[in-house]
Design a protein around this nucleic acid. Structure first.
Lengths: 344, 344
DNA sequence: CTGAAAGCGCTAACAC
DNA sequence: GTGTTAGCGCTTTCAG
C-alpha cells in the first residue's frame, strides 16, 4: 500500500535540486555538502518522507528482509528462536518473514520458493521432519541465496549451521533417569530424517552404555510427523506400554508435550508412575502434571547466532568459503522435589 | 534476492514478441490469441519463469501482502489466529507478514509504521495492552490503508472488527464457578485499555449479579502489561490471597497460565484449593496442575473471518462504508472430573 | 491481436 | 558538489 507520500522527486522539485542529489543527501554520502544535506534532511523530515522500500529493492536487487522457516510458531522453542532472530535482524535493519512448514515437505518447499521469489536476501531454516531431499535448497544456494540452518540441519551442505549440543543434552537427560534408578528407558523421537533425531539417539545410547544397560531398539519409537498428529503419539505410547518402561526420554518439544498428553489419555495411572525427561522449551513445564525433567535449548541465542551468521554472509564482499557449525549448550532442569511430592 | 531468473524481457526476446504481449499472455488477457498464449506459457514453464513481485508491486502500487500485529506469537490464541489468517490469505494469493508488539505501544507503532512503509495492502491488528492512543492508525486508515481489528478492538473506529463473545464467555465461566459453590470469586484481568478487559469484566459482573453475589472491586486485579512480567502477576496474586477467594476467573491466555504459575510459586497449597477458570487457547490445558475450566475462543475462525473481511476491503472497487462487527461464540471446557480427582 | 513507449521510485555511473 | 541519464522488471495506455 502506498499513499500520497512524498517521493524523492517531490523533494527535489520543492528544493530545486535533482533527484540524485536528494537521494545522496538522504543517504548521507560524502559528495554532498553539509548545507545541502541539512536542507534536504530538514525538508524530508517536514514532509515526513519515507523511502519506498519496494523501489529500493527493485533497484538494488535486494530487499533487506530475511526469510524464516520453522515447522510451527505455536511451539515455544521456535517462537523463542524467532524472538532471537528478530532481536538481531531489526537491529541491523532487516525485516523478517516467517513461514510455517507444519512438518510438511511440500509446504516447506512451497514456502521457500515463495520467499525466494519475494526476493529475500537470505534464509534461516529448520527442516521439516518429512524433508529428505534438499536439492531445491541446493539450487537456491547455488544461485546465490545465503542459507543458514539451525536446529534441524542437513549433512553434506556446506554452509553455516547452529545447533544445540544434542548429544550432551540427551546424554544428560538419560543419565539423570538412570541415576534416579530407572533401567528400562524408552526413547520417543522424531523422524529419522532429522539430524536432531540421530544426534539425540546417540546421546541416549551413550548414557545407556556408560551404565551398562543394553540398548533395546524396541524401546525407541519414531514419529514421522513430529507429533503433529495425535494418533502417531498414541500409537507409539500403546506400543511402548507392554514393554513396561520405567522411564522415557523424549526428543523434542512438540513430542514431549504430545507424549505426556498421550500417556495421560492412554493410561493416566501409568503416566504418573513413569519418569519423564524430554527436550522442551515450554515456559509452562512447571504446570505440567505429571511433571518432567526437561532439556532446554538456548533458543533465543540460537536465533541470534544464526542471524548474525546469515547477515555476515549476505553482506560479505566475496563468497564465503569458511563455514562454521556453532554448537550451543543445553540446560537440564530437574523436577523440583517439593512440587512433585506434595501436590501431585 | 534475485538470481539469474528469466524476466519477461528474456521471454519476449526468445520468442520474438514484445514484453507487453508476454505480460498479457502471462496474465491470460483476452486480447491475446490462444496460440500466442500457449507459446508464451510453454516457454515460461520451460525456463521456470517467476514474475518478480517487487517489480509488480512498484508498478501496481500494492504488494499482495497483509500485515499482522499480535502481542506475541508464543501464545496459542494468537498462533491459532495466525494459522486462520494464513489459511485464507494463501488461498487468495496474499502473503502475510507477522509482527509482535510484546504488549508495548511503542513497539506496536514501530511495527505498524514499518509494515505500512513496506507497502502492505492491509492490516490485521489486535491492540497491545499499553495502547491508548490510536491516532497513528487513524492516520494510516485515512490515507487509505484498510484495517481490520480482531480480539482487542478500539471503540470509535469505523471499520470491520472480529471478536469473541467476551461477555458470554465470561458470564459462562463465572457462572460455572458459582454453580460449583464458589462465592468469593476473584477476577484477574488485563489492562483497562483493552476492549476485552471491559467486556469480560461485564460478563463476570453479570454472572455475580444473577446469583445475587455482591461485586467487590477489590477482588478485581488488573495487569497493565498483560502478564508479560511475572512480577505483576505475583503482586496481583499476593494482594488477592488475604481476601481468601475460593475461585478466580482469569481474562486472557497469557494471564491464565501466568496466574497459575504465580499461584503455585506463592502458595502451592492454595493453588490447588482455589477453583480456576480462565480464557485460554492453550492446547496443553489438560496437562496443567492445578487443572482449570477454560474458555476457548474460536481463534482459527477469527483469523479466517478477519482476513476475509480485510481482503474484501482491499479489493473493493469503491470505499467500504458498511462495516460489521462479527462476534464469535466461545466454548466452555470444564474440568474433567476423572483427571482432577484421581491424579492430582 | 500485437508493439512501442512511458513510468512506478529509487540508485549509480558518468558527465560537468 | 550537483545534474543528467539510464534502468531495475513489470503493467498499461495508446497506436497500429
Amino acid at each position: 500500500m502506498r499513499f500520497e507520500t512524498s517521493t524523492i522527486k517531490d523533494i527535489a522539485k520543492a528544493l530545486g535540486l535533482s533527484t540524485s542529489t536528494v537521494s545522496r543527501a538522504l543517504r548521507d554520502r560524502y559528495e554532498i555538502s553539509e548545507e545541502t544535506k541539512k536542507l534536504v534532511l530538514a525538508y524530508a523530515e517536514k514532509v515526513n518522507y519515507r523511502a519506498n522500500p519496494i523501489a529500493r529493492s527493485l533497484k538494488e536487487r535486494r530487499s533487506y528482509s530475511i526469510g524464516i522457516i520453522v515447522s510451527e510458531i505455536a511451539n515455544n522453542f521456535f517462537s523463542q528462536v524467532i524472538n532471537g532472530i528478530e532481536s538481531i535482524a531489526y537491529d541491523k535493519d532487516y525485516h523478517v518473514i516467517i513461514s510455517q512448514s507444519h512438518e510438511s515437505f511440500e509446504q516447506e518447499k512451497l514456502n521457500v520458493d515463495h520467499l525466494a521469489s519475494r526476493s529475500i536476501d537470505g534464509l534461516l531454516i529448520a527442516l521439516s521432519s518429512e524433508t529428505q531431499n534438499i536439492d531445491y535448497l541446493r539450487d537456491l544456494y547455488a544461485k546465490g541465496l545465503p542459507i543458514v540452518f539451525f536446529d534441524r540441519v542437513p549433512e553434506n551442505f556446506e554452509t553455516h549451521k547452529v545447533i544445540a549440543n544434542n548429544f550432551k543434552g540427551s546424554f544428560d537427560a538419560t543419565e539423570h533417569l538412570i541415576l534416579s534408578g530407572k533401567r528400562t528407558i524408552a526413547h520417543l523421537t522424531n523422524s529419522e530424517n532429522l539430524s536432531i533425531t540421530r544426534e539425540r539417539l546417540k546421546g541416549y545410547q551413550a548414557a545407556l552404555a556408560k551404565y551398562h544397560i543394553d540398548f533395546n531398539p524396541d524401546l525407541v519409537k519414531y514419529c514421522q510427523h513430529g507429533g503433529m498428529h495425535s494418533e502417531e503419539l498414541e500409537t507409539a505410547v500403546k506400543e511402548l506400554l507392554p514393554l513396561k518402561p520405567d522411564g522415557i526420554f523424549i526428543a523434542s518439544d512438540r513430542l514431549t508435550t504430545g507424549c505426556i498428553m498421550a500417556l495421560k489419555n492412554t493410561n493416566p495411572e501409568f503416566a504418573h508412575k513413569i519418569a519423564i525427561a524430554g527436550f522442551t522449551n515450554s515456559n509452562l513445564v512447571e504446570l505440567f502434571s505429571p511433571s518432567l525433567t526437561s532439556v532446554r535449548q538456548p533458543a533465543f541465542e540460537m536465533g541470534q547466532v544464526a542471524t548474525e551468521l546469515l547477515i555476515s554472509m549476505i553482506e560479505a564482499k566475496r563468497p564465503v568459503v569458511d563455514f562454521e557449525t556453532r554448537i550451543l549448550d543445553t540446560e537440564l532442569i530437574k523436577i523440583q522435589k517439593a512440587a512433585s511430592n506434595k501436590f501431585l
